[in-house]
Simulated scan of single mutants.
Amino acid sequence: MAIDFSGMLDDGDEKVIHPREVFFTLDRGPSFSFPRDIQTEVMNRWFDNRDQPDNVIKLNVGSGKTLVGLLLLQSSINEGKGPALYVAPDKQLSQQIINEAKALGIEVTDDPRDADYAAGEKICVVNVYKLFNGKSVFGVGASKINIGTVGSGPIDFCREF
C-alpha cells in the first residue's frame, strides 16, 4: 500500500506581488495603518503596467511617494525582478528612505555589495552620486553589480533598468 505524502509537502510560500497586498503583509509600525486612496490608485495603475520598461509616477508633496516607491520595489523583489535599487537625490533623503523602510518593516541596506541585495532579498538605498560617478560601484572596472529594478525619489520610478 502506497502512502501519499503530497498533502504534507511544502509547495513554498507564494509571494504576494501586488504592492497594496505587500503592504498588509509587512510587520509595520502603528503610523502605517493603511495606504491612502491616491496611493492605492497609483499602485493599481503601476501594477497593471509593471511590465512596461519605464514608468513615471507623479504624486503631490506629502502624498506618500516614498512609501509607494518602497512598496513597488518590494513587489518587484517578490516577483523575482530584483535586485532592487532605490536612488535618492542626496544623503539626507537616503537616510529618510531607510528610516521609513524600517518603520514599514521592509528590509533595506545602503551597501550595494550586500549579499542580500545581490540575492534580491533587500532593497539597496543609495544617493544618486553612488550610482552616477567615475568610481561607481555599479559598473566601473571588472566588477559590476546587477540592478534588476530601480526606483528613484522623490517623483519617479522605473522598471528594468
Rank of each mutant, 00 (worst) to 15 (best):
P154R: 11
Q52V: 09
I123R: 08
L93T: 14
T149Q: 07
K15Y: 09
D37N: 08
F24W: 13
D27S: 12
I38D: 12
K58A: 13
R50P: 00
L104V: 07
K144C: 03
I147M: 03
G80C: 06
T109Q: 10
P83H: 02
R159Y: 09
L73A: 02
L59S: 04
G151P: 03
D54G: 03
G153R: 06
N49A: 13
Q92H: 11
G151R: 10
E107M: 08
G151A: 13
L70H: 02
S76Y: 02
D110P: 05
E121G: 07
R113F: 11
L93P: 06
Q52A: 13
Q92W: 08
V128I: 15
I147V: 15
D13C: 04
L67F: 06
N146M: 11
Q39D: 01
A103N: 12
V61A: 12
A115H: 07
E14R: 13
L72Y: 00
G12A: 05
V137C: 02
D116W: 02
K122D: 01
G29W: 06
T40Q: 14
D51R: 13
F157V: 09
R50W: 00
I98K: 14
G62Y: 07
M8C: 07
D116N: 14
I147A: 03
V16P: 05
D51V: 12
L70I: 03
G120M: 01
R28Q: 06
S76Q: 15
S31T: 06
N78R: 11
F47K: 07
P53R: 10
V16L: 06
P19L: 11
G141L: 00
G105R: 00
S143G: 07
G141Q: 01
V140M: 04
L104E: 04
K144I: 09
I145C: 08
E160N: 12
L104M: 15
Y86R: 02
A119K: 15
F34S: 14
Q52N: 13
T109Y: 10
T66N: 10
P83A: 00
I17N: 10
E79H: 06
Q39M: 04
I155H: 04
D10S: 05
A2M: 09
N146P: 07
P30Q: 10
R113N: 14
I97K: 03
F47M: 05
R20D: 12
D10C: 00
I123C: 05
A88D: 06
V150I: 13
P30S: 13
G64E: 00
S136Y: 00
L85Q: 02
F34L: 09
L72I: 05
T149N: 09
Q52Y: 08
V68K: 01
R20K: 15
K144D: 02
N60L: 12
L104C: 07
D13S: 12
W46D: 07
L59V: 11
A103H: 04
K122F: 09
R113V: 10
V140N: 06
E79W: 04
L73C: 01
D110C: 11
G29C: 07
